[in-house]
Protein backbone atom coordinates (compact mmCIF):
# COMPACT_ATOMS: atom_id res chain seq x y z
CA UNK A 1 0.00 0.00 0.00
CA UNK A 2 2.80 2.34 0.87
CA UNK A 3 4.43 1.91 -2.51
CA UNK A 4 1.25 2.59 -4.33
CA UNK A 5 0.85 5.80 -2.39
CA UNK A 6 4.37 6.85 -3.19
CA UNK A 7 3.78 6.59 -6.91
CA UNK A 8 0.59 8.49 -7.28
CA UNK A 9 0.37 11.01 -4.50
CA UNK A 10 0.36 13.98 -6.81
CA UNK A 11 -2.28 12.61 -9.12
CA UNK A 12 -4.27 11.51 -6.14
CA UNK A 13 -4.33 15.02 -4.72
CA UNK A 14 -5.55 16.48 -7.98
CA UNK A 15 -8.10 13.81 -8.61
CA UNK A 16 -9.45 14.17 -5.14
CA UNK A 17 -9.96 17.88 -5.55
CA UNK A 18 -12.42 17.11 -8.31
CA UNK A 19 -14.23 14.29 -6.60
CA UNK A 20 -14.13 15.41 -2.96
CA UNK A 21 -17.22 15.79 -0.96
CA UNK A 22 -16.67 16.81 2.59
CA UNK A 23 -19.15 15.27 4.96
CA UNK A 24 -18.99 17.98 7.56
CA UNK A 25 -19.62 21.41 6.12
CA UNK A 26 -18.53 23.36 9.13
CA UNK A 27 -15.28 24.95 10.21
CA UNK A 28 -16.17 24.39 13.88
CA UNK A 29 -14.11 21.85 15.79
CA UNK A 30 -15.92 18.58 16.23
CA UNK A 31 -16.70 17.51 19.79
CA UNK A 32 -14.96 14.26 19.01
CA UNK A 33 -12.46 13.65 16.23
CA UNK A 34 -14.46 12.47 13.28
CA UNK A 35 -13.52 9.46 11.23
CA UNK A 36 -12.12 6.42 13.01
CA UNK A 37 -9.94 7.54 15.91
CA UNK A 38 -10.27 4.24 17.78
CA UNK A 39 -9.01 0.79 16.89
CA UNK A 40 -9.40 -2.70 18.33
CA UNK A 41 -6.66 -3.80 20.76
CA UNK A 42 -4.79 -0.50 20.67
CA UNK A 43 -1.09 -0.36 21.59
CA UNK A 44 -1.62 3.06 23.11
CA UNK A 45 -4.76 4.93 23.81
CA UNK A 46 -5.28 8.55 24.71
CA UNK A 47 -8.49 9.80 26.27
CA UNK A 48 -9.54 13.38 27.06
CA UNK A 49 -5.99 14.66 26.83
CA UNK A 50 -5.46 18.33 27.66
CA UNK A 51 -1.99 19.86 27.70
CA UNK A 52 -1.20 23.23 29.23
CA UNK A 53 1.91 25.42 29.11
CA UNK A 54 1.40 27.51 32.20
CA UNK A 55 -1.98 29.20 31.68
CA UNK A 56 -2.06 28.54 27.97
CA UNK A 57 -3.83 25.41 26.76
CA UNK A 58 -2.05 23.76 23.85
CA UNK A 59 -4.09 20.56 23.43
CA UNK A 60 -7.85 20.34 23.81
CA UNK A 61 -9.58 17.08 24.70
CA UNK A 62 -7.84 14.72 22.30
CA UNK A 63 -9.09 11.14 22.00
CA UNK A 64 -7.21 8.73 19.77
CA UNK A 65 -5.78 5.23 19.68
CA UNK A 66 -2.55 3.96 18.16
CA UNK A 67 -2.82 0.41 16.90
CA UNK A 68 -0.28 -2.37 17.14
CA UNK A 69 2.39 -2.15 14.38
CA UNK A 70 0.64 0.81 12.91
CA UNK A 71 2.21 3.93 11.43
CA UNK A 72 0.09 6.90 12.38
CA UNK A 73 0.92 10.28 10.90
CA UNK A 74 0.02 13.52 12.63
CA UNK A 75 -0.35 16.47 10.32
CA UNK A 76 -1.52 20.02 10.71
CA UNK A 77 -0.43 23.61 10.40
CA UNK A 78 2.50 24.91 12.48
CA UNK A 79 1.75 25.44 16.14
CA UNK A 80 -1.23 23.09 16.09
CA UNK A 81 0.13 21.06 18.99
CA UNK A 82 1.09 17.86 17.19
CA UNK A 83 4.66 17.91 18.55
CA UNK A 84 3.36 18.75 22.01
CA UNK A 85 0.98 15.83 21.82
CA UNK A 86 3.75 13.51 20.65
CA UNK A 87 6.02 14.57 23.47
CA UNK A 88 3.25 13.92 25.98
CA UNK A 89 3.16 10.29 24.91
CA UNK A 90 6.60 9.46 26.34
CA UNK A 91 6.56 12.18 28.98
CA UNK A 92 9.32 14.22 27.35
CA UNK A 93 7.20 17.18 28.43
CA UNK A 94 8.12 16.42 32.05
CA UNK A 95 11.34 18.31 31.43
CA UNK A 96 9.39 21.48 30.71
CA UNK A 97 8.60 23.04 34.07
CA UNK A 98 5.42 24.83 33.10
CA UNK A 99 3.90 21.91 31.18
CA UNK A 100 0.92 20.00 32.61
CA UNK A 101 -0.79 17.02 31.01
CA UNK A 102 -4.35 15.99 31.93
CA UNK A 103 -6.33 13.01 30.74
CA UNK A 104 -5.70 9.31 30.47
CA UNK A 105 -2.84 7.99 28.37
CA UNK A 106 -2.13 4.28 28.41
CA UNK A 107 0.47 1.97 26.96
CA UNK A 108 -0.76 -1.64 26.85
CA UNK A 109 -3.43 -0.59 29.30
CA UNK A 110 -0.96 0.87 31.82
CA UNK A 111 -1.46 4.50 32.75
CA UNK A 112 1.56 6.47 31.53
CA UNK A 113 1.07 9.31 34.00
CA UNK A 114 0.35 7.19 37.06
CA UNK A 115 2.72 7.32 39.99
CA UNK A 116 3.65 3.69 39.33
CA UNK A 117 4.97 4.45 35.86
CA UNK A 118 8.63 5.43 35.93
CA UNK A 119 9.33 7.94 33.16
CA UNK A 120 12.78 6.42 32.57
CA UNK A 121 11.30 2.95 32.10
CA UNK A 122 8.56 4.42 29.91
CA UNK A 123 11.09 6.06 27.58
CA UNK A 124 12.89 2.75 27.25
CA UNK A 125 9.61 1.35 25.86
CA UNK A 126 8.61 4.43 23.87
CA UNK A 127 11.62 5.67 21.96
CA UNK A 128 11.93 8.98 20.19
CA UNK A 129 13.58 10.43 17.10
CA UNK A 130 13.86 14.19 17.00
CA UNK A 131 13.43 16.86 14.37
CA UNK A 132 17.10 17.75 14.18
CA UNK A 133 19.55 14.85 14.09
CA UNK A 134 21.13 14.90 17.53
CA UNK A 135 23.82 12.22 17.80
CA UNK A 136 25.92 12.32 20.96
CA UNK A 137 29.39 13.75 20.44
CA UNK A 138 30.74 10.23 20.78
CA UNK A 139 31.69 7.46 18.39
CA UNK A 140 29.09 5.80 16.18
CA UNK A 141 29.44 2.64 18.24
CA UNK A 142 28.96 4.50 21.53
CA UNK A 143 25.93 6.32 20.15
CA UNK A 144 24.12 3.09 19.40
CA UNK A 145 25.37 1.14 22.41
CA UNK A 146 24.57 3.90 24.89
CA UNK A 147 20.95 2.90 25.44
CA UNK A 148 21.56 -0.86 25.79
CA UNK A 149 24.41 -0.12 28.19
CA UNK A 150 22.24 2.18 30.30
CA UNK A 151 19.54 -0.42 30.66
CA UNK A 152 21.95 -3.33 31.01
CA UNK A 153 20.56 -5.10 27.95
CA UNK A 154 23.89 -6.72 27.13
CA UNK A 155 26.05 -8.47 29.67
CA UNK A 156 29.00 -9.16 27.39
CA UNK A 157 30.82 -7.12 24.81
CA UNK A 158 29.89 -9.58 22.07
CA UNK A 159 26.19 -9.16 22.80
CA UNK A 160 26.60 -5.41 22.67
CA UNK A 161 28.40 -5.68 19.34
CA UNK A 162 25.52 -7.75 18.06
CA UNK A 163 22.92 -5.21 19.18
CA UNK A 164 24.89 -2.38 17.58
CA UNK A 165 25.26 -4.24 14.32
CA UNK A 166 21.61 -5.25 14.20
CA UNK A 167 20.38 -1.76 15.01
CA UNK A 168 22.59 -0.19 12.37
CA UNK A 169 21.42 -2.83 9.90
CA UNK A 170 17.80 -2.06 10.60
CA UNK A 171 18.48 1.64 10.28
CA UNK A 172 20.09 0.93 6.90
CA UNK A 173 23.36 2.45 8.00
CA UNK A 174 25.52 -0.62 8.57
CA UNK A 175 27.08 -0.83 5.13
CA UNK A 176 28.03 2.85 5.25
CA UNK A 177 29.64 2.90 8.68
CA UNK A 178 30.79 -0.63 9.48
CA UNK A 179 34.43 0.30 8.91
CA UNK A 180 34.39 3.42 11.02
CA UNK A 181 32.37 2.61 14.10
CA UNK A 182 34.95 4.35 16.27
CA UNK A 183 34.59 7.65 14.46
CA UNK A 184 32.42 10.46 15.80
CA UNK A 185 28.73 10.24 14.99
CA UNK A 186 28.72 13.98 14.51
CA UNK A 187 31.00 13.56 11.47
CA UNK A 188 28.28 11.84 9.42
CA UNK A 189 26.07 13.61 6.91
CA UNK A 190 22.67 14.90 8.02
CA UNK A 191 20.74 11.93 6.64
CA UNK A 192 23.21 9.45 8.07
CA UNK A 193 23.04 11.21 11.44
CA UNK A 194 19.27 10.89 11.46
CA UNK A 195 19.50 7.19 10.64
CA UNK A 196 22.08 6.88 13.41
CA UNK A 197 19.55 8.44 15.76
CA UNK A 198 16.97 5.91 14.58
CA UNK A 199 19.50 3.11 15.18
CA UNK A 200 20.08 4.52 18.65
CA UNK A 201 16.35 4.55 19.31
CA UNK A 202 15.76 0.98 18.15
CA UNK A 203 18.85 -0.38 19.92
CA UNK A 204 16.86 -0.60 23.14
CA UNK A 205 14.02 -2.42 21.30
CA UNK A 206 11.26 0.00 22.17
CA UNK A 207 7.66 -0.99 21.52
CA UNK A 208 6.69 2.38 20.12
CA UNK A 209 8.84 4.87 18.22
CA UNK A 210 7.81 8.51 18.15
CA UNK A 211 9.22 10.59 15.31
CA UNK A 212 9.01 14.36 15.48
CA UNK A 213 9.43 15.62 11.89
CA UNK A 214 12.40 13.31 11.33
CA UNK A 215 13.00 14.50 7.78
CA UNK A 216 12.51 18.25 8.07
CA UNK A 217 16.26 18.89 8.10
CA UNK A 218 17.09 16.43 5.32
CA UNK A 219 17.33 16.54 1.55
CA UNK A 220 14.89 14.51 -0.64
CA UNK A 221 17.26 11.55 -1.09
CA UNK A 222 17.93 11.19 2.63
CA UNK A 223 14.20 11.66 3.20
CA UNK A 224 13.38 8.83 0.81
CA UNK A 225 15.76 6.53 2.71
CA UNK A 226 14.18 7.37 6.05
CA UNK A 227 10.71 6.82 4.62
CA UNK A 228 11.71 3.43 3.28
CA UNK A 229 13.10 2.66 6.70
CA UNK A 230 9.85 3.63 8.40
CA UNK A 231 7.96 1.22 6.17
CA UNK A 232 10.36 -1.58 7.14
CA UNK A 233 10.31 -0.71 10.82
CA UNK A 234 6.54 -0.83 10.95
CA UNK A 235 6.77 -4.61 10.71
CA UNK A 236 8.24 -4.71 14.21
CA UNK A 237 7.37 -1.43 15.81
CA UNK A 238 4.46 0.88 16.34
CA UNK A 239 5.30 4.28 14.95
CA UNK A 240 3.79 7.72 15.46
CA UNK A 241 5.23 10.33 13.13
CA UNK A 242 4.68 14.07 13.11
CA UNK A 243 5.27 15.62 9.72
CA UNK A 244 4.78 18.84 7.84
CA UNK A 245 4.84 17.11 4.53
CA UNK A 246 1.47 15.75 3.43
CA UNK A 247 3.16 13.70 0.74
CA UNK A 248 5.26 12.08 3.40
CA UNK A 249 2.23 11.32 5.52
CA UNK A 250 0.54 9.87 2.46
CA UNK A 251 3.57 7.75 1.62
CA UNK A 252 4.45 6.26 4.99
CA UNK A 253 1.38 6.08 7.21
CA UNK A 254 -1.57 3.77 7.58
CA UNK A 255 -3.71 6.27 9.38
CA UNK A 256 -3.51 10.04 9.49
CA UNK A 257 -4.60 12.38 12.26
CA UNK A 258 -5.27 16.01 11.44
CA UNK A 259 -4.65 18.53 14.23
CA UNK A 260 -5.89 22.09 14.10
CA UNK A 261 -4.86 24.62 16.79
CA UNK A 262 -4.75 22.03 19.52
CA UNK A 263 -7.88 20.16 18.43
CA UNK A 264 -7.86 16.75 16.85
CA UNK A 265 -10.20 17.24 13.92
CA UNK A 266 -10.14 14.03 11.95
CA UNK A 267 -8.53 10.60 12.09
CA UNK A 268 -8.95 8.22 9.19
CA UNK A 269 -7.18 5.77 6.98
CA UNK A 270 -4.52 7.74 5.18
CA UNK A 271 -5.98 7.10 1.78
CA UNK A 272 -9.33 8.31 2.91
CA UNK A 273 -7.96 11.48 4.51
CA UNK A 274 -6.23 12.45 1.30
CA UNK A 275 -8.94 11.42 -1.13
CA UNK A 276 -12.14 12.05 0.74
CA UNK A 277 -11.62 14.09 3.89
CA UNK A 278 -14.68 14.17 6.06
CA UNK A 279 -14.16 17.54 7.70
CA UNK A 280 -14.07 20.93 6.07
CA UNK A 281 -10.89 21.94 7.96
CA UNK A 282 -9.03 18.82 6.88
CA UNK A 283 -10.06 19.40 3.34
CA UNK A 284 -8.97 23.02 3.46
CA UNK A 285 -5.56 22.00 4.77
CA UNK A 286 -4.80 19.18 2.38
CA UNK A 287 -5.93 21.13 -0.63
CA UNK A 288 -3.57 23.89 0.39
CA UNK A 289 -6.07 26.58 1.27
CA UNK A 290 -4.03 27.22 4.41
CA UNK A 291 -1.19 25.71 6.35
Amino acid sequence: MVNKLVTDTAEMLEEKTASRKAVVHSTAYPEQAIGSPFVKNPKMSMRNVDVFYGEKQAIFNVNVDIGQNEVIAMIGPSGCGKSTFLRSINRMNDTVDSCRVKGELTLDGEDIYSAKMDPVALRARVGMVFQKPNPFPKSIYDNVSYGPRLHGLASRRAELDEIVEMSLHRAGLWEEVKDRLDQPGTGLSGGQQQRLCIARAIAISPEVILMDEPCSALDPIATAKIEELIAELSENYTIAIVTHSMQQAARVSHRTAYFHLGHLVEVNDTEKVFTAPEHELTEAYITGRFG
Partner: peptide, 20 residues
Protein backbone atom coordinates in the same frame (compact mmCIF):
# COMPACT_ATOMS: atom_id res chain seq x y z
CA UNK B 1 19.18 18.50 21.81
CA UNK B 2 21.86 16.38 23.50
CA UNK B 3 19.88 16.38 26.75
CA UNK B 4 16.72 15.39 24.86
CA UNK B 5 18.56 12.64 23.02
CA UNK B 6 19.78 11.18 26.29
CA UNK B 7 16.36 11.46 27.96
CA UNK B 8 14.84 9.94 24.82
CA UNK B 9 16.83 6.74 25.13
CA UNK B 10 15.89 6.49 28.78
CA UNK B 11 18.75 8.06 30.70
CA UNK B 12 17.87 9.12 34.23
CA UNK B 13 18.38 12.80 35.06
CA UNK B 14 21.63 12.01 36.87
CA UNK B 15 22.90 9.95 33.94
CA UNK B 16 22.07 12.79 31.57
CA UNK B 17 24.22 15.09 33.69
CA UNK B 18 27.10 12.69 34.29
CA UNK B 19 27.31 11.17 30.81
CA UNK B 20 26.54 14.16 28.62
Amino acid sequence: SIREAAIGVGASPMQVVLHH
